[in-house]
C-alpha cells in the first residue's frame, strides 16, 4: 500500500479512535443491571478468560462494571464539553463585540472561577444540588470552561488587532459581519480542539469526585466508586480491583487526548505535509 500523507493518516486514525470510543460508550448502555449482578460463589476471583478483570467482593464482573462506569464518565464529559463550548462562544462574542469594560468583566469572572480549586468548587456545586449524579454533572460542566474561555479571549484580542479586521471596519462592515467572516473561521477549530482536550479533564474529575463519595451512590457503576471500593481490599492483595479498572480509565483518557491532537493536525493547514 502506498504510504499515505500525514493528514490522511490522521483522518483514518481519528475515525478509528472515534469508533473505539463509541463502542465503549454504547457497550456501557447495553450492559444491563442484571448482567452485572453477580453471585457470591464467584466473589473475589482474579482475572481469567471468563472475567477479564476478575470479580469484586460481591461477585460482580469488574470488566462489565468498568465499561458501564466509563460510559457514565463519557456522558458527563460530553455534557461538560457542550456547556463549555457554549460559554466559550459567548465569551468570544463578548470580547469581540463588547467594550473594554466587558472584556475586563469577563476576565474577572474567569479569574473568580480559577481562584477556587476546581475540586472544591465542584464539591460546593454538588453539595448545592444535593450530591448525586446531577450534582457532579452540573458541577463539572460549569467549572471546566475557564481554560478554553481564556484561550478564546486571548485569540479574539489578537484577531481584533489584525490589519484585515481594521480594514474591514474601515470599509464599513458591521461588528457581526466581521465576527462571522473574519473571527469564527479562526475560532471554530480552536474551540473544537479545546473541547476535546478538555474532555479528559472532565472525565478525570468525575472519577475523582465519585472516588471521594460526592458522585453517584455506591450501588451505581462509576469508575471512581469501583476504585474507592478496591481500596478496602488492597491490603488483602486483591490488586486487580484497583489496577485493571484504573488502567482502562487511563487508556480511555489517552485515546481522547490522542483524538484531540489528531484533530488539531487535521485542522491546522501547516501540518498537512510531512
Amino acid at each position: 500500500m502506498r504510504r499515505q500523507n500525514y493528514r490522511t493518516r490522521a483522518v483514518i486514525l481519528s475515525v478509528l479512535l472515534l469508533v473505539i470510543l463509541m463502542a465503549i460508550y454504547l457497550s456501557g448502555i447495553f450492559i444491563t443491571e442484571d448482567m452485572i449482578l453477580g453471585s457470591f460463589l464467584e466473589a473475589k476471583l482474579p482475572p481469567d478468560f471468563q472475567h477479564f478483570f476478575g470479580t469484586d467482593a460481591l461477585g460482580r464482573d469488574l470488566f462489565l462494571r468498568t465499561l458501564k462506569g466509563l460510559s457514565v464518565s463519557i456522558t458527563i464529559g460530553l455534557a461538560a464539553s457542550f456547556i463549555s463550548g457554549i460559554i466559550a462562544v459567548l465569551v468570544g462574542i463578548g470580547v469581540a463585540c463588547g467594550s473594554k469594560k466587558t472584556e475586563e468583566a469577563i476576565t474577572w469572572v474567569i479569574d473568580l472561577f480559577m481562584g477556587i480549586p476546581h475540586i472544591v468548587l465542584i464539591m460546593l456545586i454538588s453539595f448545592a444540588l444535593g450530591r448525586g449524579f446531577w450534582g457532579v454533572l452540573i458541577g463539572i460542566s460549569f467549572t471546566h470552561w475557564c481554560g478554553l474561555a481564556r484561550v478564546i479571549r486571548a485569540e479574539v484580542l489578537q484577531l481584533k488587532s489584525e490589519p484585515y479586521v481594521a480594514i474591514s471596519k474601515k470599509l464599513g462592515k458591521s461588528g457581526s459581519w466581521i465576527m462571522v467572516h473574519h473571527m469564527l473561521p479562526h475560532l471554530t477549530g480552536q474551540i473544537l480542539v479545546g473541547l476535546i482536550l478538555m474532555f479528559p479533564h472532565a472525565v478525570l474529575h468525575e472519577a475523582s469526585l465519585s472516588f471521594l463519595g460526592f458522585g453517584l451512590s455506591p450501588e451505581q457503576p462509576a469508575i471512581g466508586i469501583i476504585l474507592a471500593e478496591s481500596m478496602r481490599y488492597l491490603s488483602t492483595g486483591m490488586w486487580w480491583m484497583a489496577v485493571l479498572p484504573g488502567l482502562l480509565l487511563v487508556i480511555l483518557v489517552l485515546l481522547i487526548d490522542k483524538l484531540g491532537h489528531l484533530l488539531r493536525i487535521i485542522w491546522d493547514p501547516y501540518s498537512s505535509q510531512g
Binding site: A207, S208, G224, L227, S230, M231, L234, V243, G246, L249
Partner: peptide
C-alpha cells in the same frame, strides 16, 4: 492522563502491600 487517586492507589499497592 492518570487520575491522582489511582497513582496513589498504585503506589500504595507497590510500596505498601
Amino acid at each position: 492522563s492518570m487520575p491522582t487517586f489511582w497513582i496513589g492507589l498504585l503506589l500504595l499497592l507497590i510500596f505498601g502491600v
